[in-house]
Design a protein around this nucleic acid. Structure first.
Lengths: 164, 164
DNA sequence: GACAATTATATGTTTAAACATCTATTATCA
DNA sequence: TGATAATAGATGTTTAAACATATAATTGTC
């Protein structure tokens, strides 16, 4: 059984709004996981966003993806994908080339070096994920994934508001 | 029922490791919530970390807290609390003074202006939390909070490793 | 077929995050 | 007591995030 968040954060009193407690729990849990994951990636000189890009491009295959498409697939949106890709290009783990048919597009693909870095990381990353969540049953994990997708679902009212 | 994450992120194939899917779901959900929360705070010129500091200091009362204590209570750890507090001091929402008994310590407290900003934000923040999670039952929320605290709990093996 | 609107990416600039190092003060203990 | 370690905080520097704006290419429309 885990520690209540308000104890973990030494808050004076428990939260008075369950929705706020839930929000804070999600953000806190993500912060803890992201910090641990960053430690796994650090020896390889990658940030989690950079690793995210490499995983996206490996999944996309040799044709690669254009900048915007990478942007929308990122786990965390970043406001400057161009320079994120610049840095990965400097590391020689990705490559870029203009598309002929639509010369606005720049296709970005993972290089053999990038593939090698990912291959080296696959085992430690899997081991990390498995050990980090070993306390939870398969059923709990499935339930958590399901509930979180409901959280991300925009409430109906807000959706209507946004479409105006 | 929410959208599966691999569809949301246009991933080529569903995840092959449930633990990884869970990790990514948590991080993705936090990113979505944090982005929405940032929109609520933006008109007030506050980042979510700055808002977090003000909430901590309001909870701490007039005596305030020292720098390190604020650091450990933050939802997301930051590596430079000093300059985070510098910026809030420049906004005149917090104040600082050296402690007499231990002159290494600097006590930081929220100012009346800081209290006023928080007071103004209380209603919109509560409304945001309520509407953002209105799709979920109380029971689901309780269950989610409980499961997330289990996720944050360090696995027993890793704990032993860390204590060496 | 011109021309505004849209889309895709890049650049300039300000601000903050990240990391290492440094100073001052207090605690520890031989 | 006096050297050493530990703690609290600040500072310097590099790197990346954030935000606005610009440039280039394509699409839609009348």
């Amino acid at each position: 059984m885990g520690t209540p968040l308000h104890v973990e954060l030494k808050s004076a009193k428990p939260f008075d709004l369950l929705e706020e407690e839930t929000h804070l729990s999600i953000v806190r849990t993500a912060a803890v996981l992201e910090h641990a994951m960053a430690q796994v990636l650090k020896p390889y000189g990658l940030t989690s966003t950079q690793y995210n890009v490499l995983r996206i491009l490996r999944g996309a295959g040799p044709a690669g993806l254009c900048r915007n498409e990478i942007g929308v697939r990122l786990l965390r949106q970043v406001p400057d994908v161009t320079r994120l890709l610049d840095r990965l290009t400097a590391m020689r783990v990705i490559g870029r080339q203009r598309t002929d048919t639509d010369r606005r597009l720049v296709r970005t693909h993972i290089t053999p070096k990038g593939m090698a870095v990912l291959a080296e990381l696959d085992a430690p990353v899997r081991a990390f994920h498995r050990s980090r969540l070993e306390n939870l049953s398969r059923q709990k994990l499935h339930q958590l994934v399901e509930t979180l997708s409901d959280v991300r679902e925009q409430p109906a009212e807000a959706k209507r508001e946004r479409e105006k």
